[in-house]
Design a binder for these strands. Structure first.
Lengths: 258, 258
DNA sequence: TAGTGGTCTAGACCACTTA
DNA sequence: AAGTGGTCTAGACCACTAG
């Protein structure tokens, strides 16, 4: 007969399950995160050394290293060469807000449409010319779009593009009719990098009219500049997002059941 | 005599410099990022297989894997088992805004001060009680702070705390006089995790008065809830940030000289 | 000097995709 | 079946910190 199995192991540490589909490094990340979340490991505490963790989890050094690196990237611990690895206390600065939220919430399931309001050739005003590193008064493309969510105006997009018939950027831009297309792969493959800024603004008359809210309502302004492979700006514009629809979220600290 | 060195090698690929202090994996990340940034590798292109990259950079499989993983995390490439690794096109959804910016810009060098406006025991109103998972009308701590930057009001912080004399949280909170203390290690080591939301708001009369801007001005509202190790909310409040001071930035795509 | 984290190797095995 | 990415091993050497 087999020895009876203890139902409640006394303080036995969790270790990795080699039969699981979850990789060993991910299990170690999860287990250590849980110990931080439940207070077994408190902020300021030193984690066991890599050698000790290796012995506990029965894995090779590289596997432990990988797990620790992930915890460092997540801001849960900090590692100092020669000293040790320590649990960090909660830090608001670790919070990150991702625009990915926007895509996920709006694209999946909900009815979202992009309406092209205007597309015309214009003479670039001083500000737009400056942002596009072009001479003031030179020709550009001006595009206005409205993103509707369940028939409600949600985002108002205005964009200036460098006018260059030799580039397919404009044609590609004009064919965008979905939010996915609007947010990713702008101009297909001709863009290399982009700068984005986000600030809170008061809506002017035109913006308020388009978004169907009172003048002076607050909104998010997401300004963007995209550059081509020669590092020249080719697109500058702003997404004006209704504040009542557009809320960003972030989490800090250790998560359980992630 | 040595053979003359070619000043301009014909299309020779860069490889890793083993004498550099920069780790091999980081050099590989940098080199591949540059090739994406300069268009040598275009969006949609397949990267050389790991075996090929191994041969080019004269490193072991793990080192290549680590470099690729970093490129994936940065959103520059996507890897598919059995198919290959491909250069991604620009995607706004990859943008991340970090609150870390706030600390870096404000703490270093610039004169920043935290002024305690109020700290009192109150009866929690319905909303605060709900957020703190406490009965409406139960006792709580109410704290108001003003963050000044070069003598200009920049952030207005209001916070409700669970009233619990047995916990040192309140005392720790009241002693916060620096922005660093305000943003990290709130309540020392008693907090496990936090939820944050950010939205654009119009300032009410009180907020406008404190921040010395017109009523109805737009502002960022950074709302936070912090939980203890028993997963009970202990702190709920908002940072109201003047829009003209608080601008967040993000970058997407391949960076050179990072 | 002993202990810590940081990097790297040269293989191995597996899962997945495509042909 | 061949090629791809994904994981893991069992060592090694190095840089840094502390007593």
């Amino acid at each position: 007969m087999r020895a009876p199995v203890l139902k409640t192991p006394r303080r036995e540490s969790k270790t990795v399950d080699r039969t699981s589909y979850e990789p060993a490094y991910a299990q170690i990340v999860r287990i250590l995160s849980e110990e931080i979340a439940t207070g077994i490991l408190h902020p300021g505490d030193q984690l066991p050394s890599e050698a000790q963790l290796r012995a506990r989890f029965f894995v090779s050094p590289m596997t432990i290293r990988r797990a620790i690196n992930i915890l460092v990237e997540r801001g849960l611990v900090s590692a100092a060469q020669g000293k040790g690895t320590f649990v960090r206390s909660l830090d608001i600065g670790e919070a990150v807000f991702r625009l990915q939220e926007l895509k996920e919430h709006w694209i999946n399931g909900d009815e979202t449409a992009v309406r092209l309001l205007e597309a015309s050739i214009v003479s670039l005003d001083e500000r737009a010319a400056d942002r596009l590193a072009a001479p003031a008064g030179s020709r550009g493309i001006y595009i206005r779009r409205l993103v509707l969510r369940e028939s409600t105006p949600a985002m108002y997009h205005r964009e200036y593009l460098i006018y260059d018939p030799s580039r397919p950027l404009v044609e590609a831009q004009l064919q965008i009719t979905s939010l996915t297309g609007l947010l990713q792969g702008q101009g297909g493959e001709g863009l290399r990098r982009g700068n984005l800024t986000m600030e809170a603004v008061n809506l002017d008359e035109e913006e308020a009219l388009v978004l169907q809210v009172p003048v002076n309502s607050s909104a998010f302004s997401l300004e963007h500049t995209f550059y081509d492979f020669d590092d020249r700006p080719v697109s500058w514009g702003k997404f004006i997002c209704r504040a009542d629809i557009f809320v960003m979220t972030a989490r800090i600290g250790a998560e359980v059941n992630l």
